[in-house]
Amino acid sequence: MIRYTEKIRERARELLGQGKVDVFIGYKKGTVPLMNQPVMIKRAEDVDQLLWDSNCCLNLANYLTKRTEKIGIVANGCNSRNIVIHILENQIKRDQLYILGIPCEGTIDHRAVLRAADNQELLGYSEDGKEFTIRGAGFEKTLKKEEFLRTNCKTCQHRNPVIYDELLGDPVPENTEVDPFSDVKGLETQPPEKKWSFFQNLISKCIRCYACRNACPLCYCPTCFVDESKPQWVGKSIDPIDTMTFHILRAYHCAGRCTDCGACERVCPVAIPMRQFTKKLNKDAKELFDWEAGLTLETRPLFDFYKTSDYNEFIY
């Protein structure tokens, strides 16, 4: 994946230098290993901050909302789908964007890596093809990337960008063997009380920091339902029912829009796998409406059109 870094810098330098874009959005190294940060580059001389490796986990579409300048941006599979959604939802215009597409080989789960390092502090990270190496005080470990992929990357069905102006490498083979919804299907067979306790347990540590909402490119409403007060849809406490209401509605607002990019899970300070909510919606959207979010600019979003023959079996 490192191989993209040079190309991104080179193209960003040209695009900024020629005035084709006013700002370039990509990733830079974070202050601690495994934590790459989004960065906005405005001057050609700063492009050497840009990089691409297996820790580019936040969703850059989040930084496009309502911007007015010309923007260069890197986009792998899931990020490109969120860009499509942003364009469809009028958050940005296609002709404002210059997209450098990245065929993606997956990103790694920093929590799993930290566990493999017995939660010792990491001081260095480097990667080489299918392996990566972590370093700390008095230890060094080389691990296989394949074994540390984030769960959404393991089951990703759209690793190649769906929209781009140029592709920085050859397309990678898509992963058609795996079932992205096996976990959801497993839970679907459980009785209601098991499901309820599963989800209660899942969110029990939530501190309602809203990082999951803020990291998601879909959540751009000027006033979020959590901040509405007349009526107040959800209390502000960490009462379990309020927290559950928050998670149901946060997920539901992503229905037909979520790309399973995993940014929400990535940023959660208490490691809540809240994709279990959105994945159910993604599964139903696929099964009932043959819908996957953000694949094309040609169709309106799921809830913005209908067919007279839509699924009707649940209605008397």
Partner: peptide, 14 residues
Amino acid sequence: RKFALLKGLLEHIG
């Protein structure tokens, strides 16, 4: 469309 997905989600969480 909205109700189909909402019903599925609510029944999924219990």
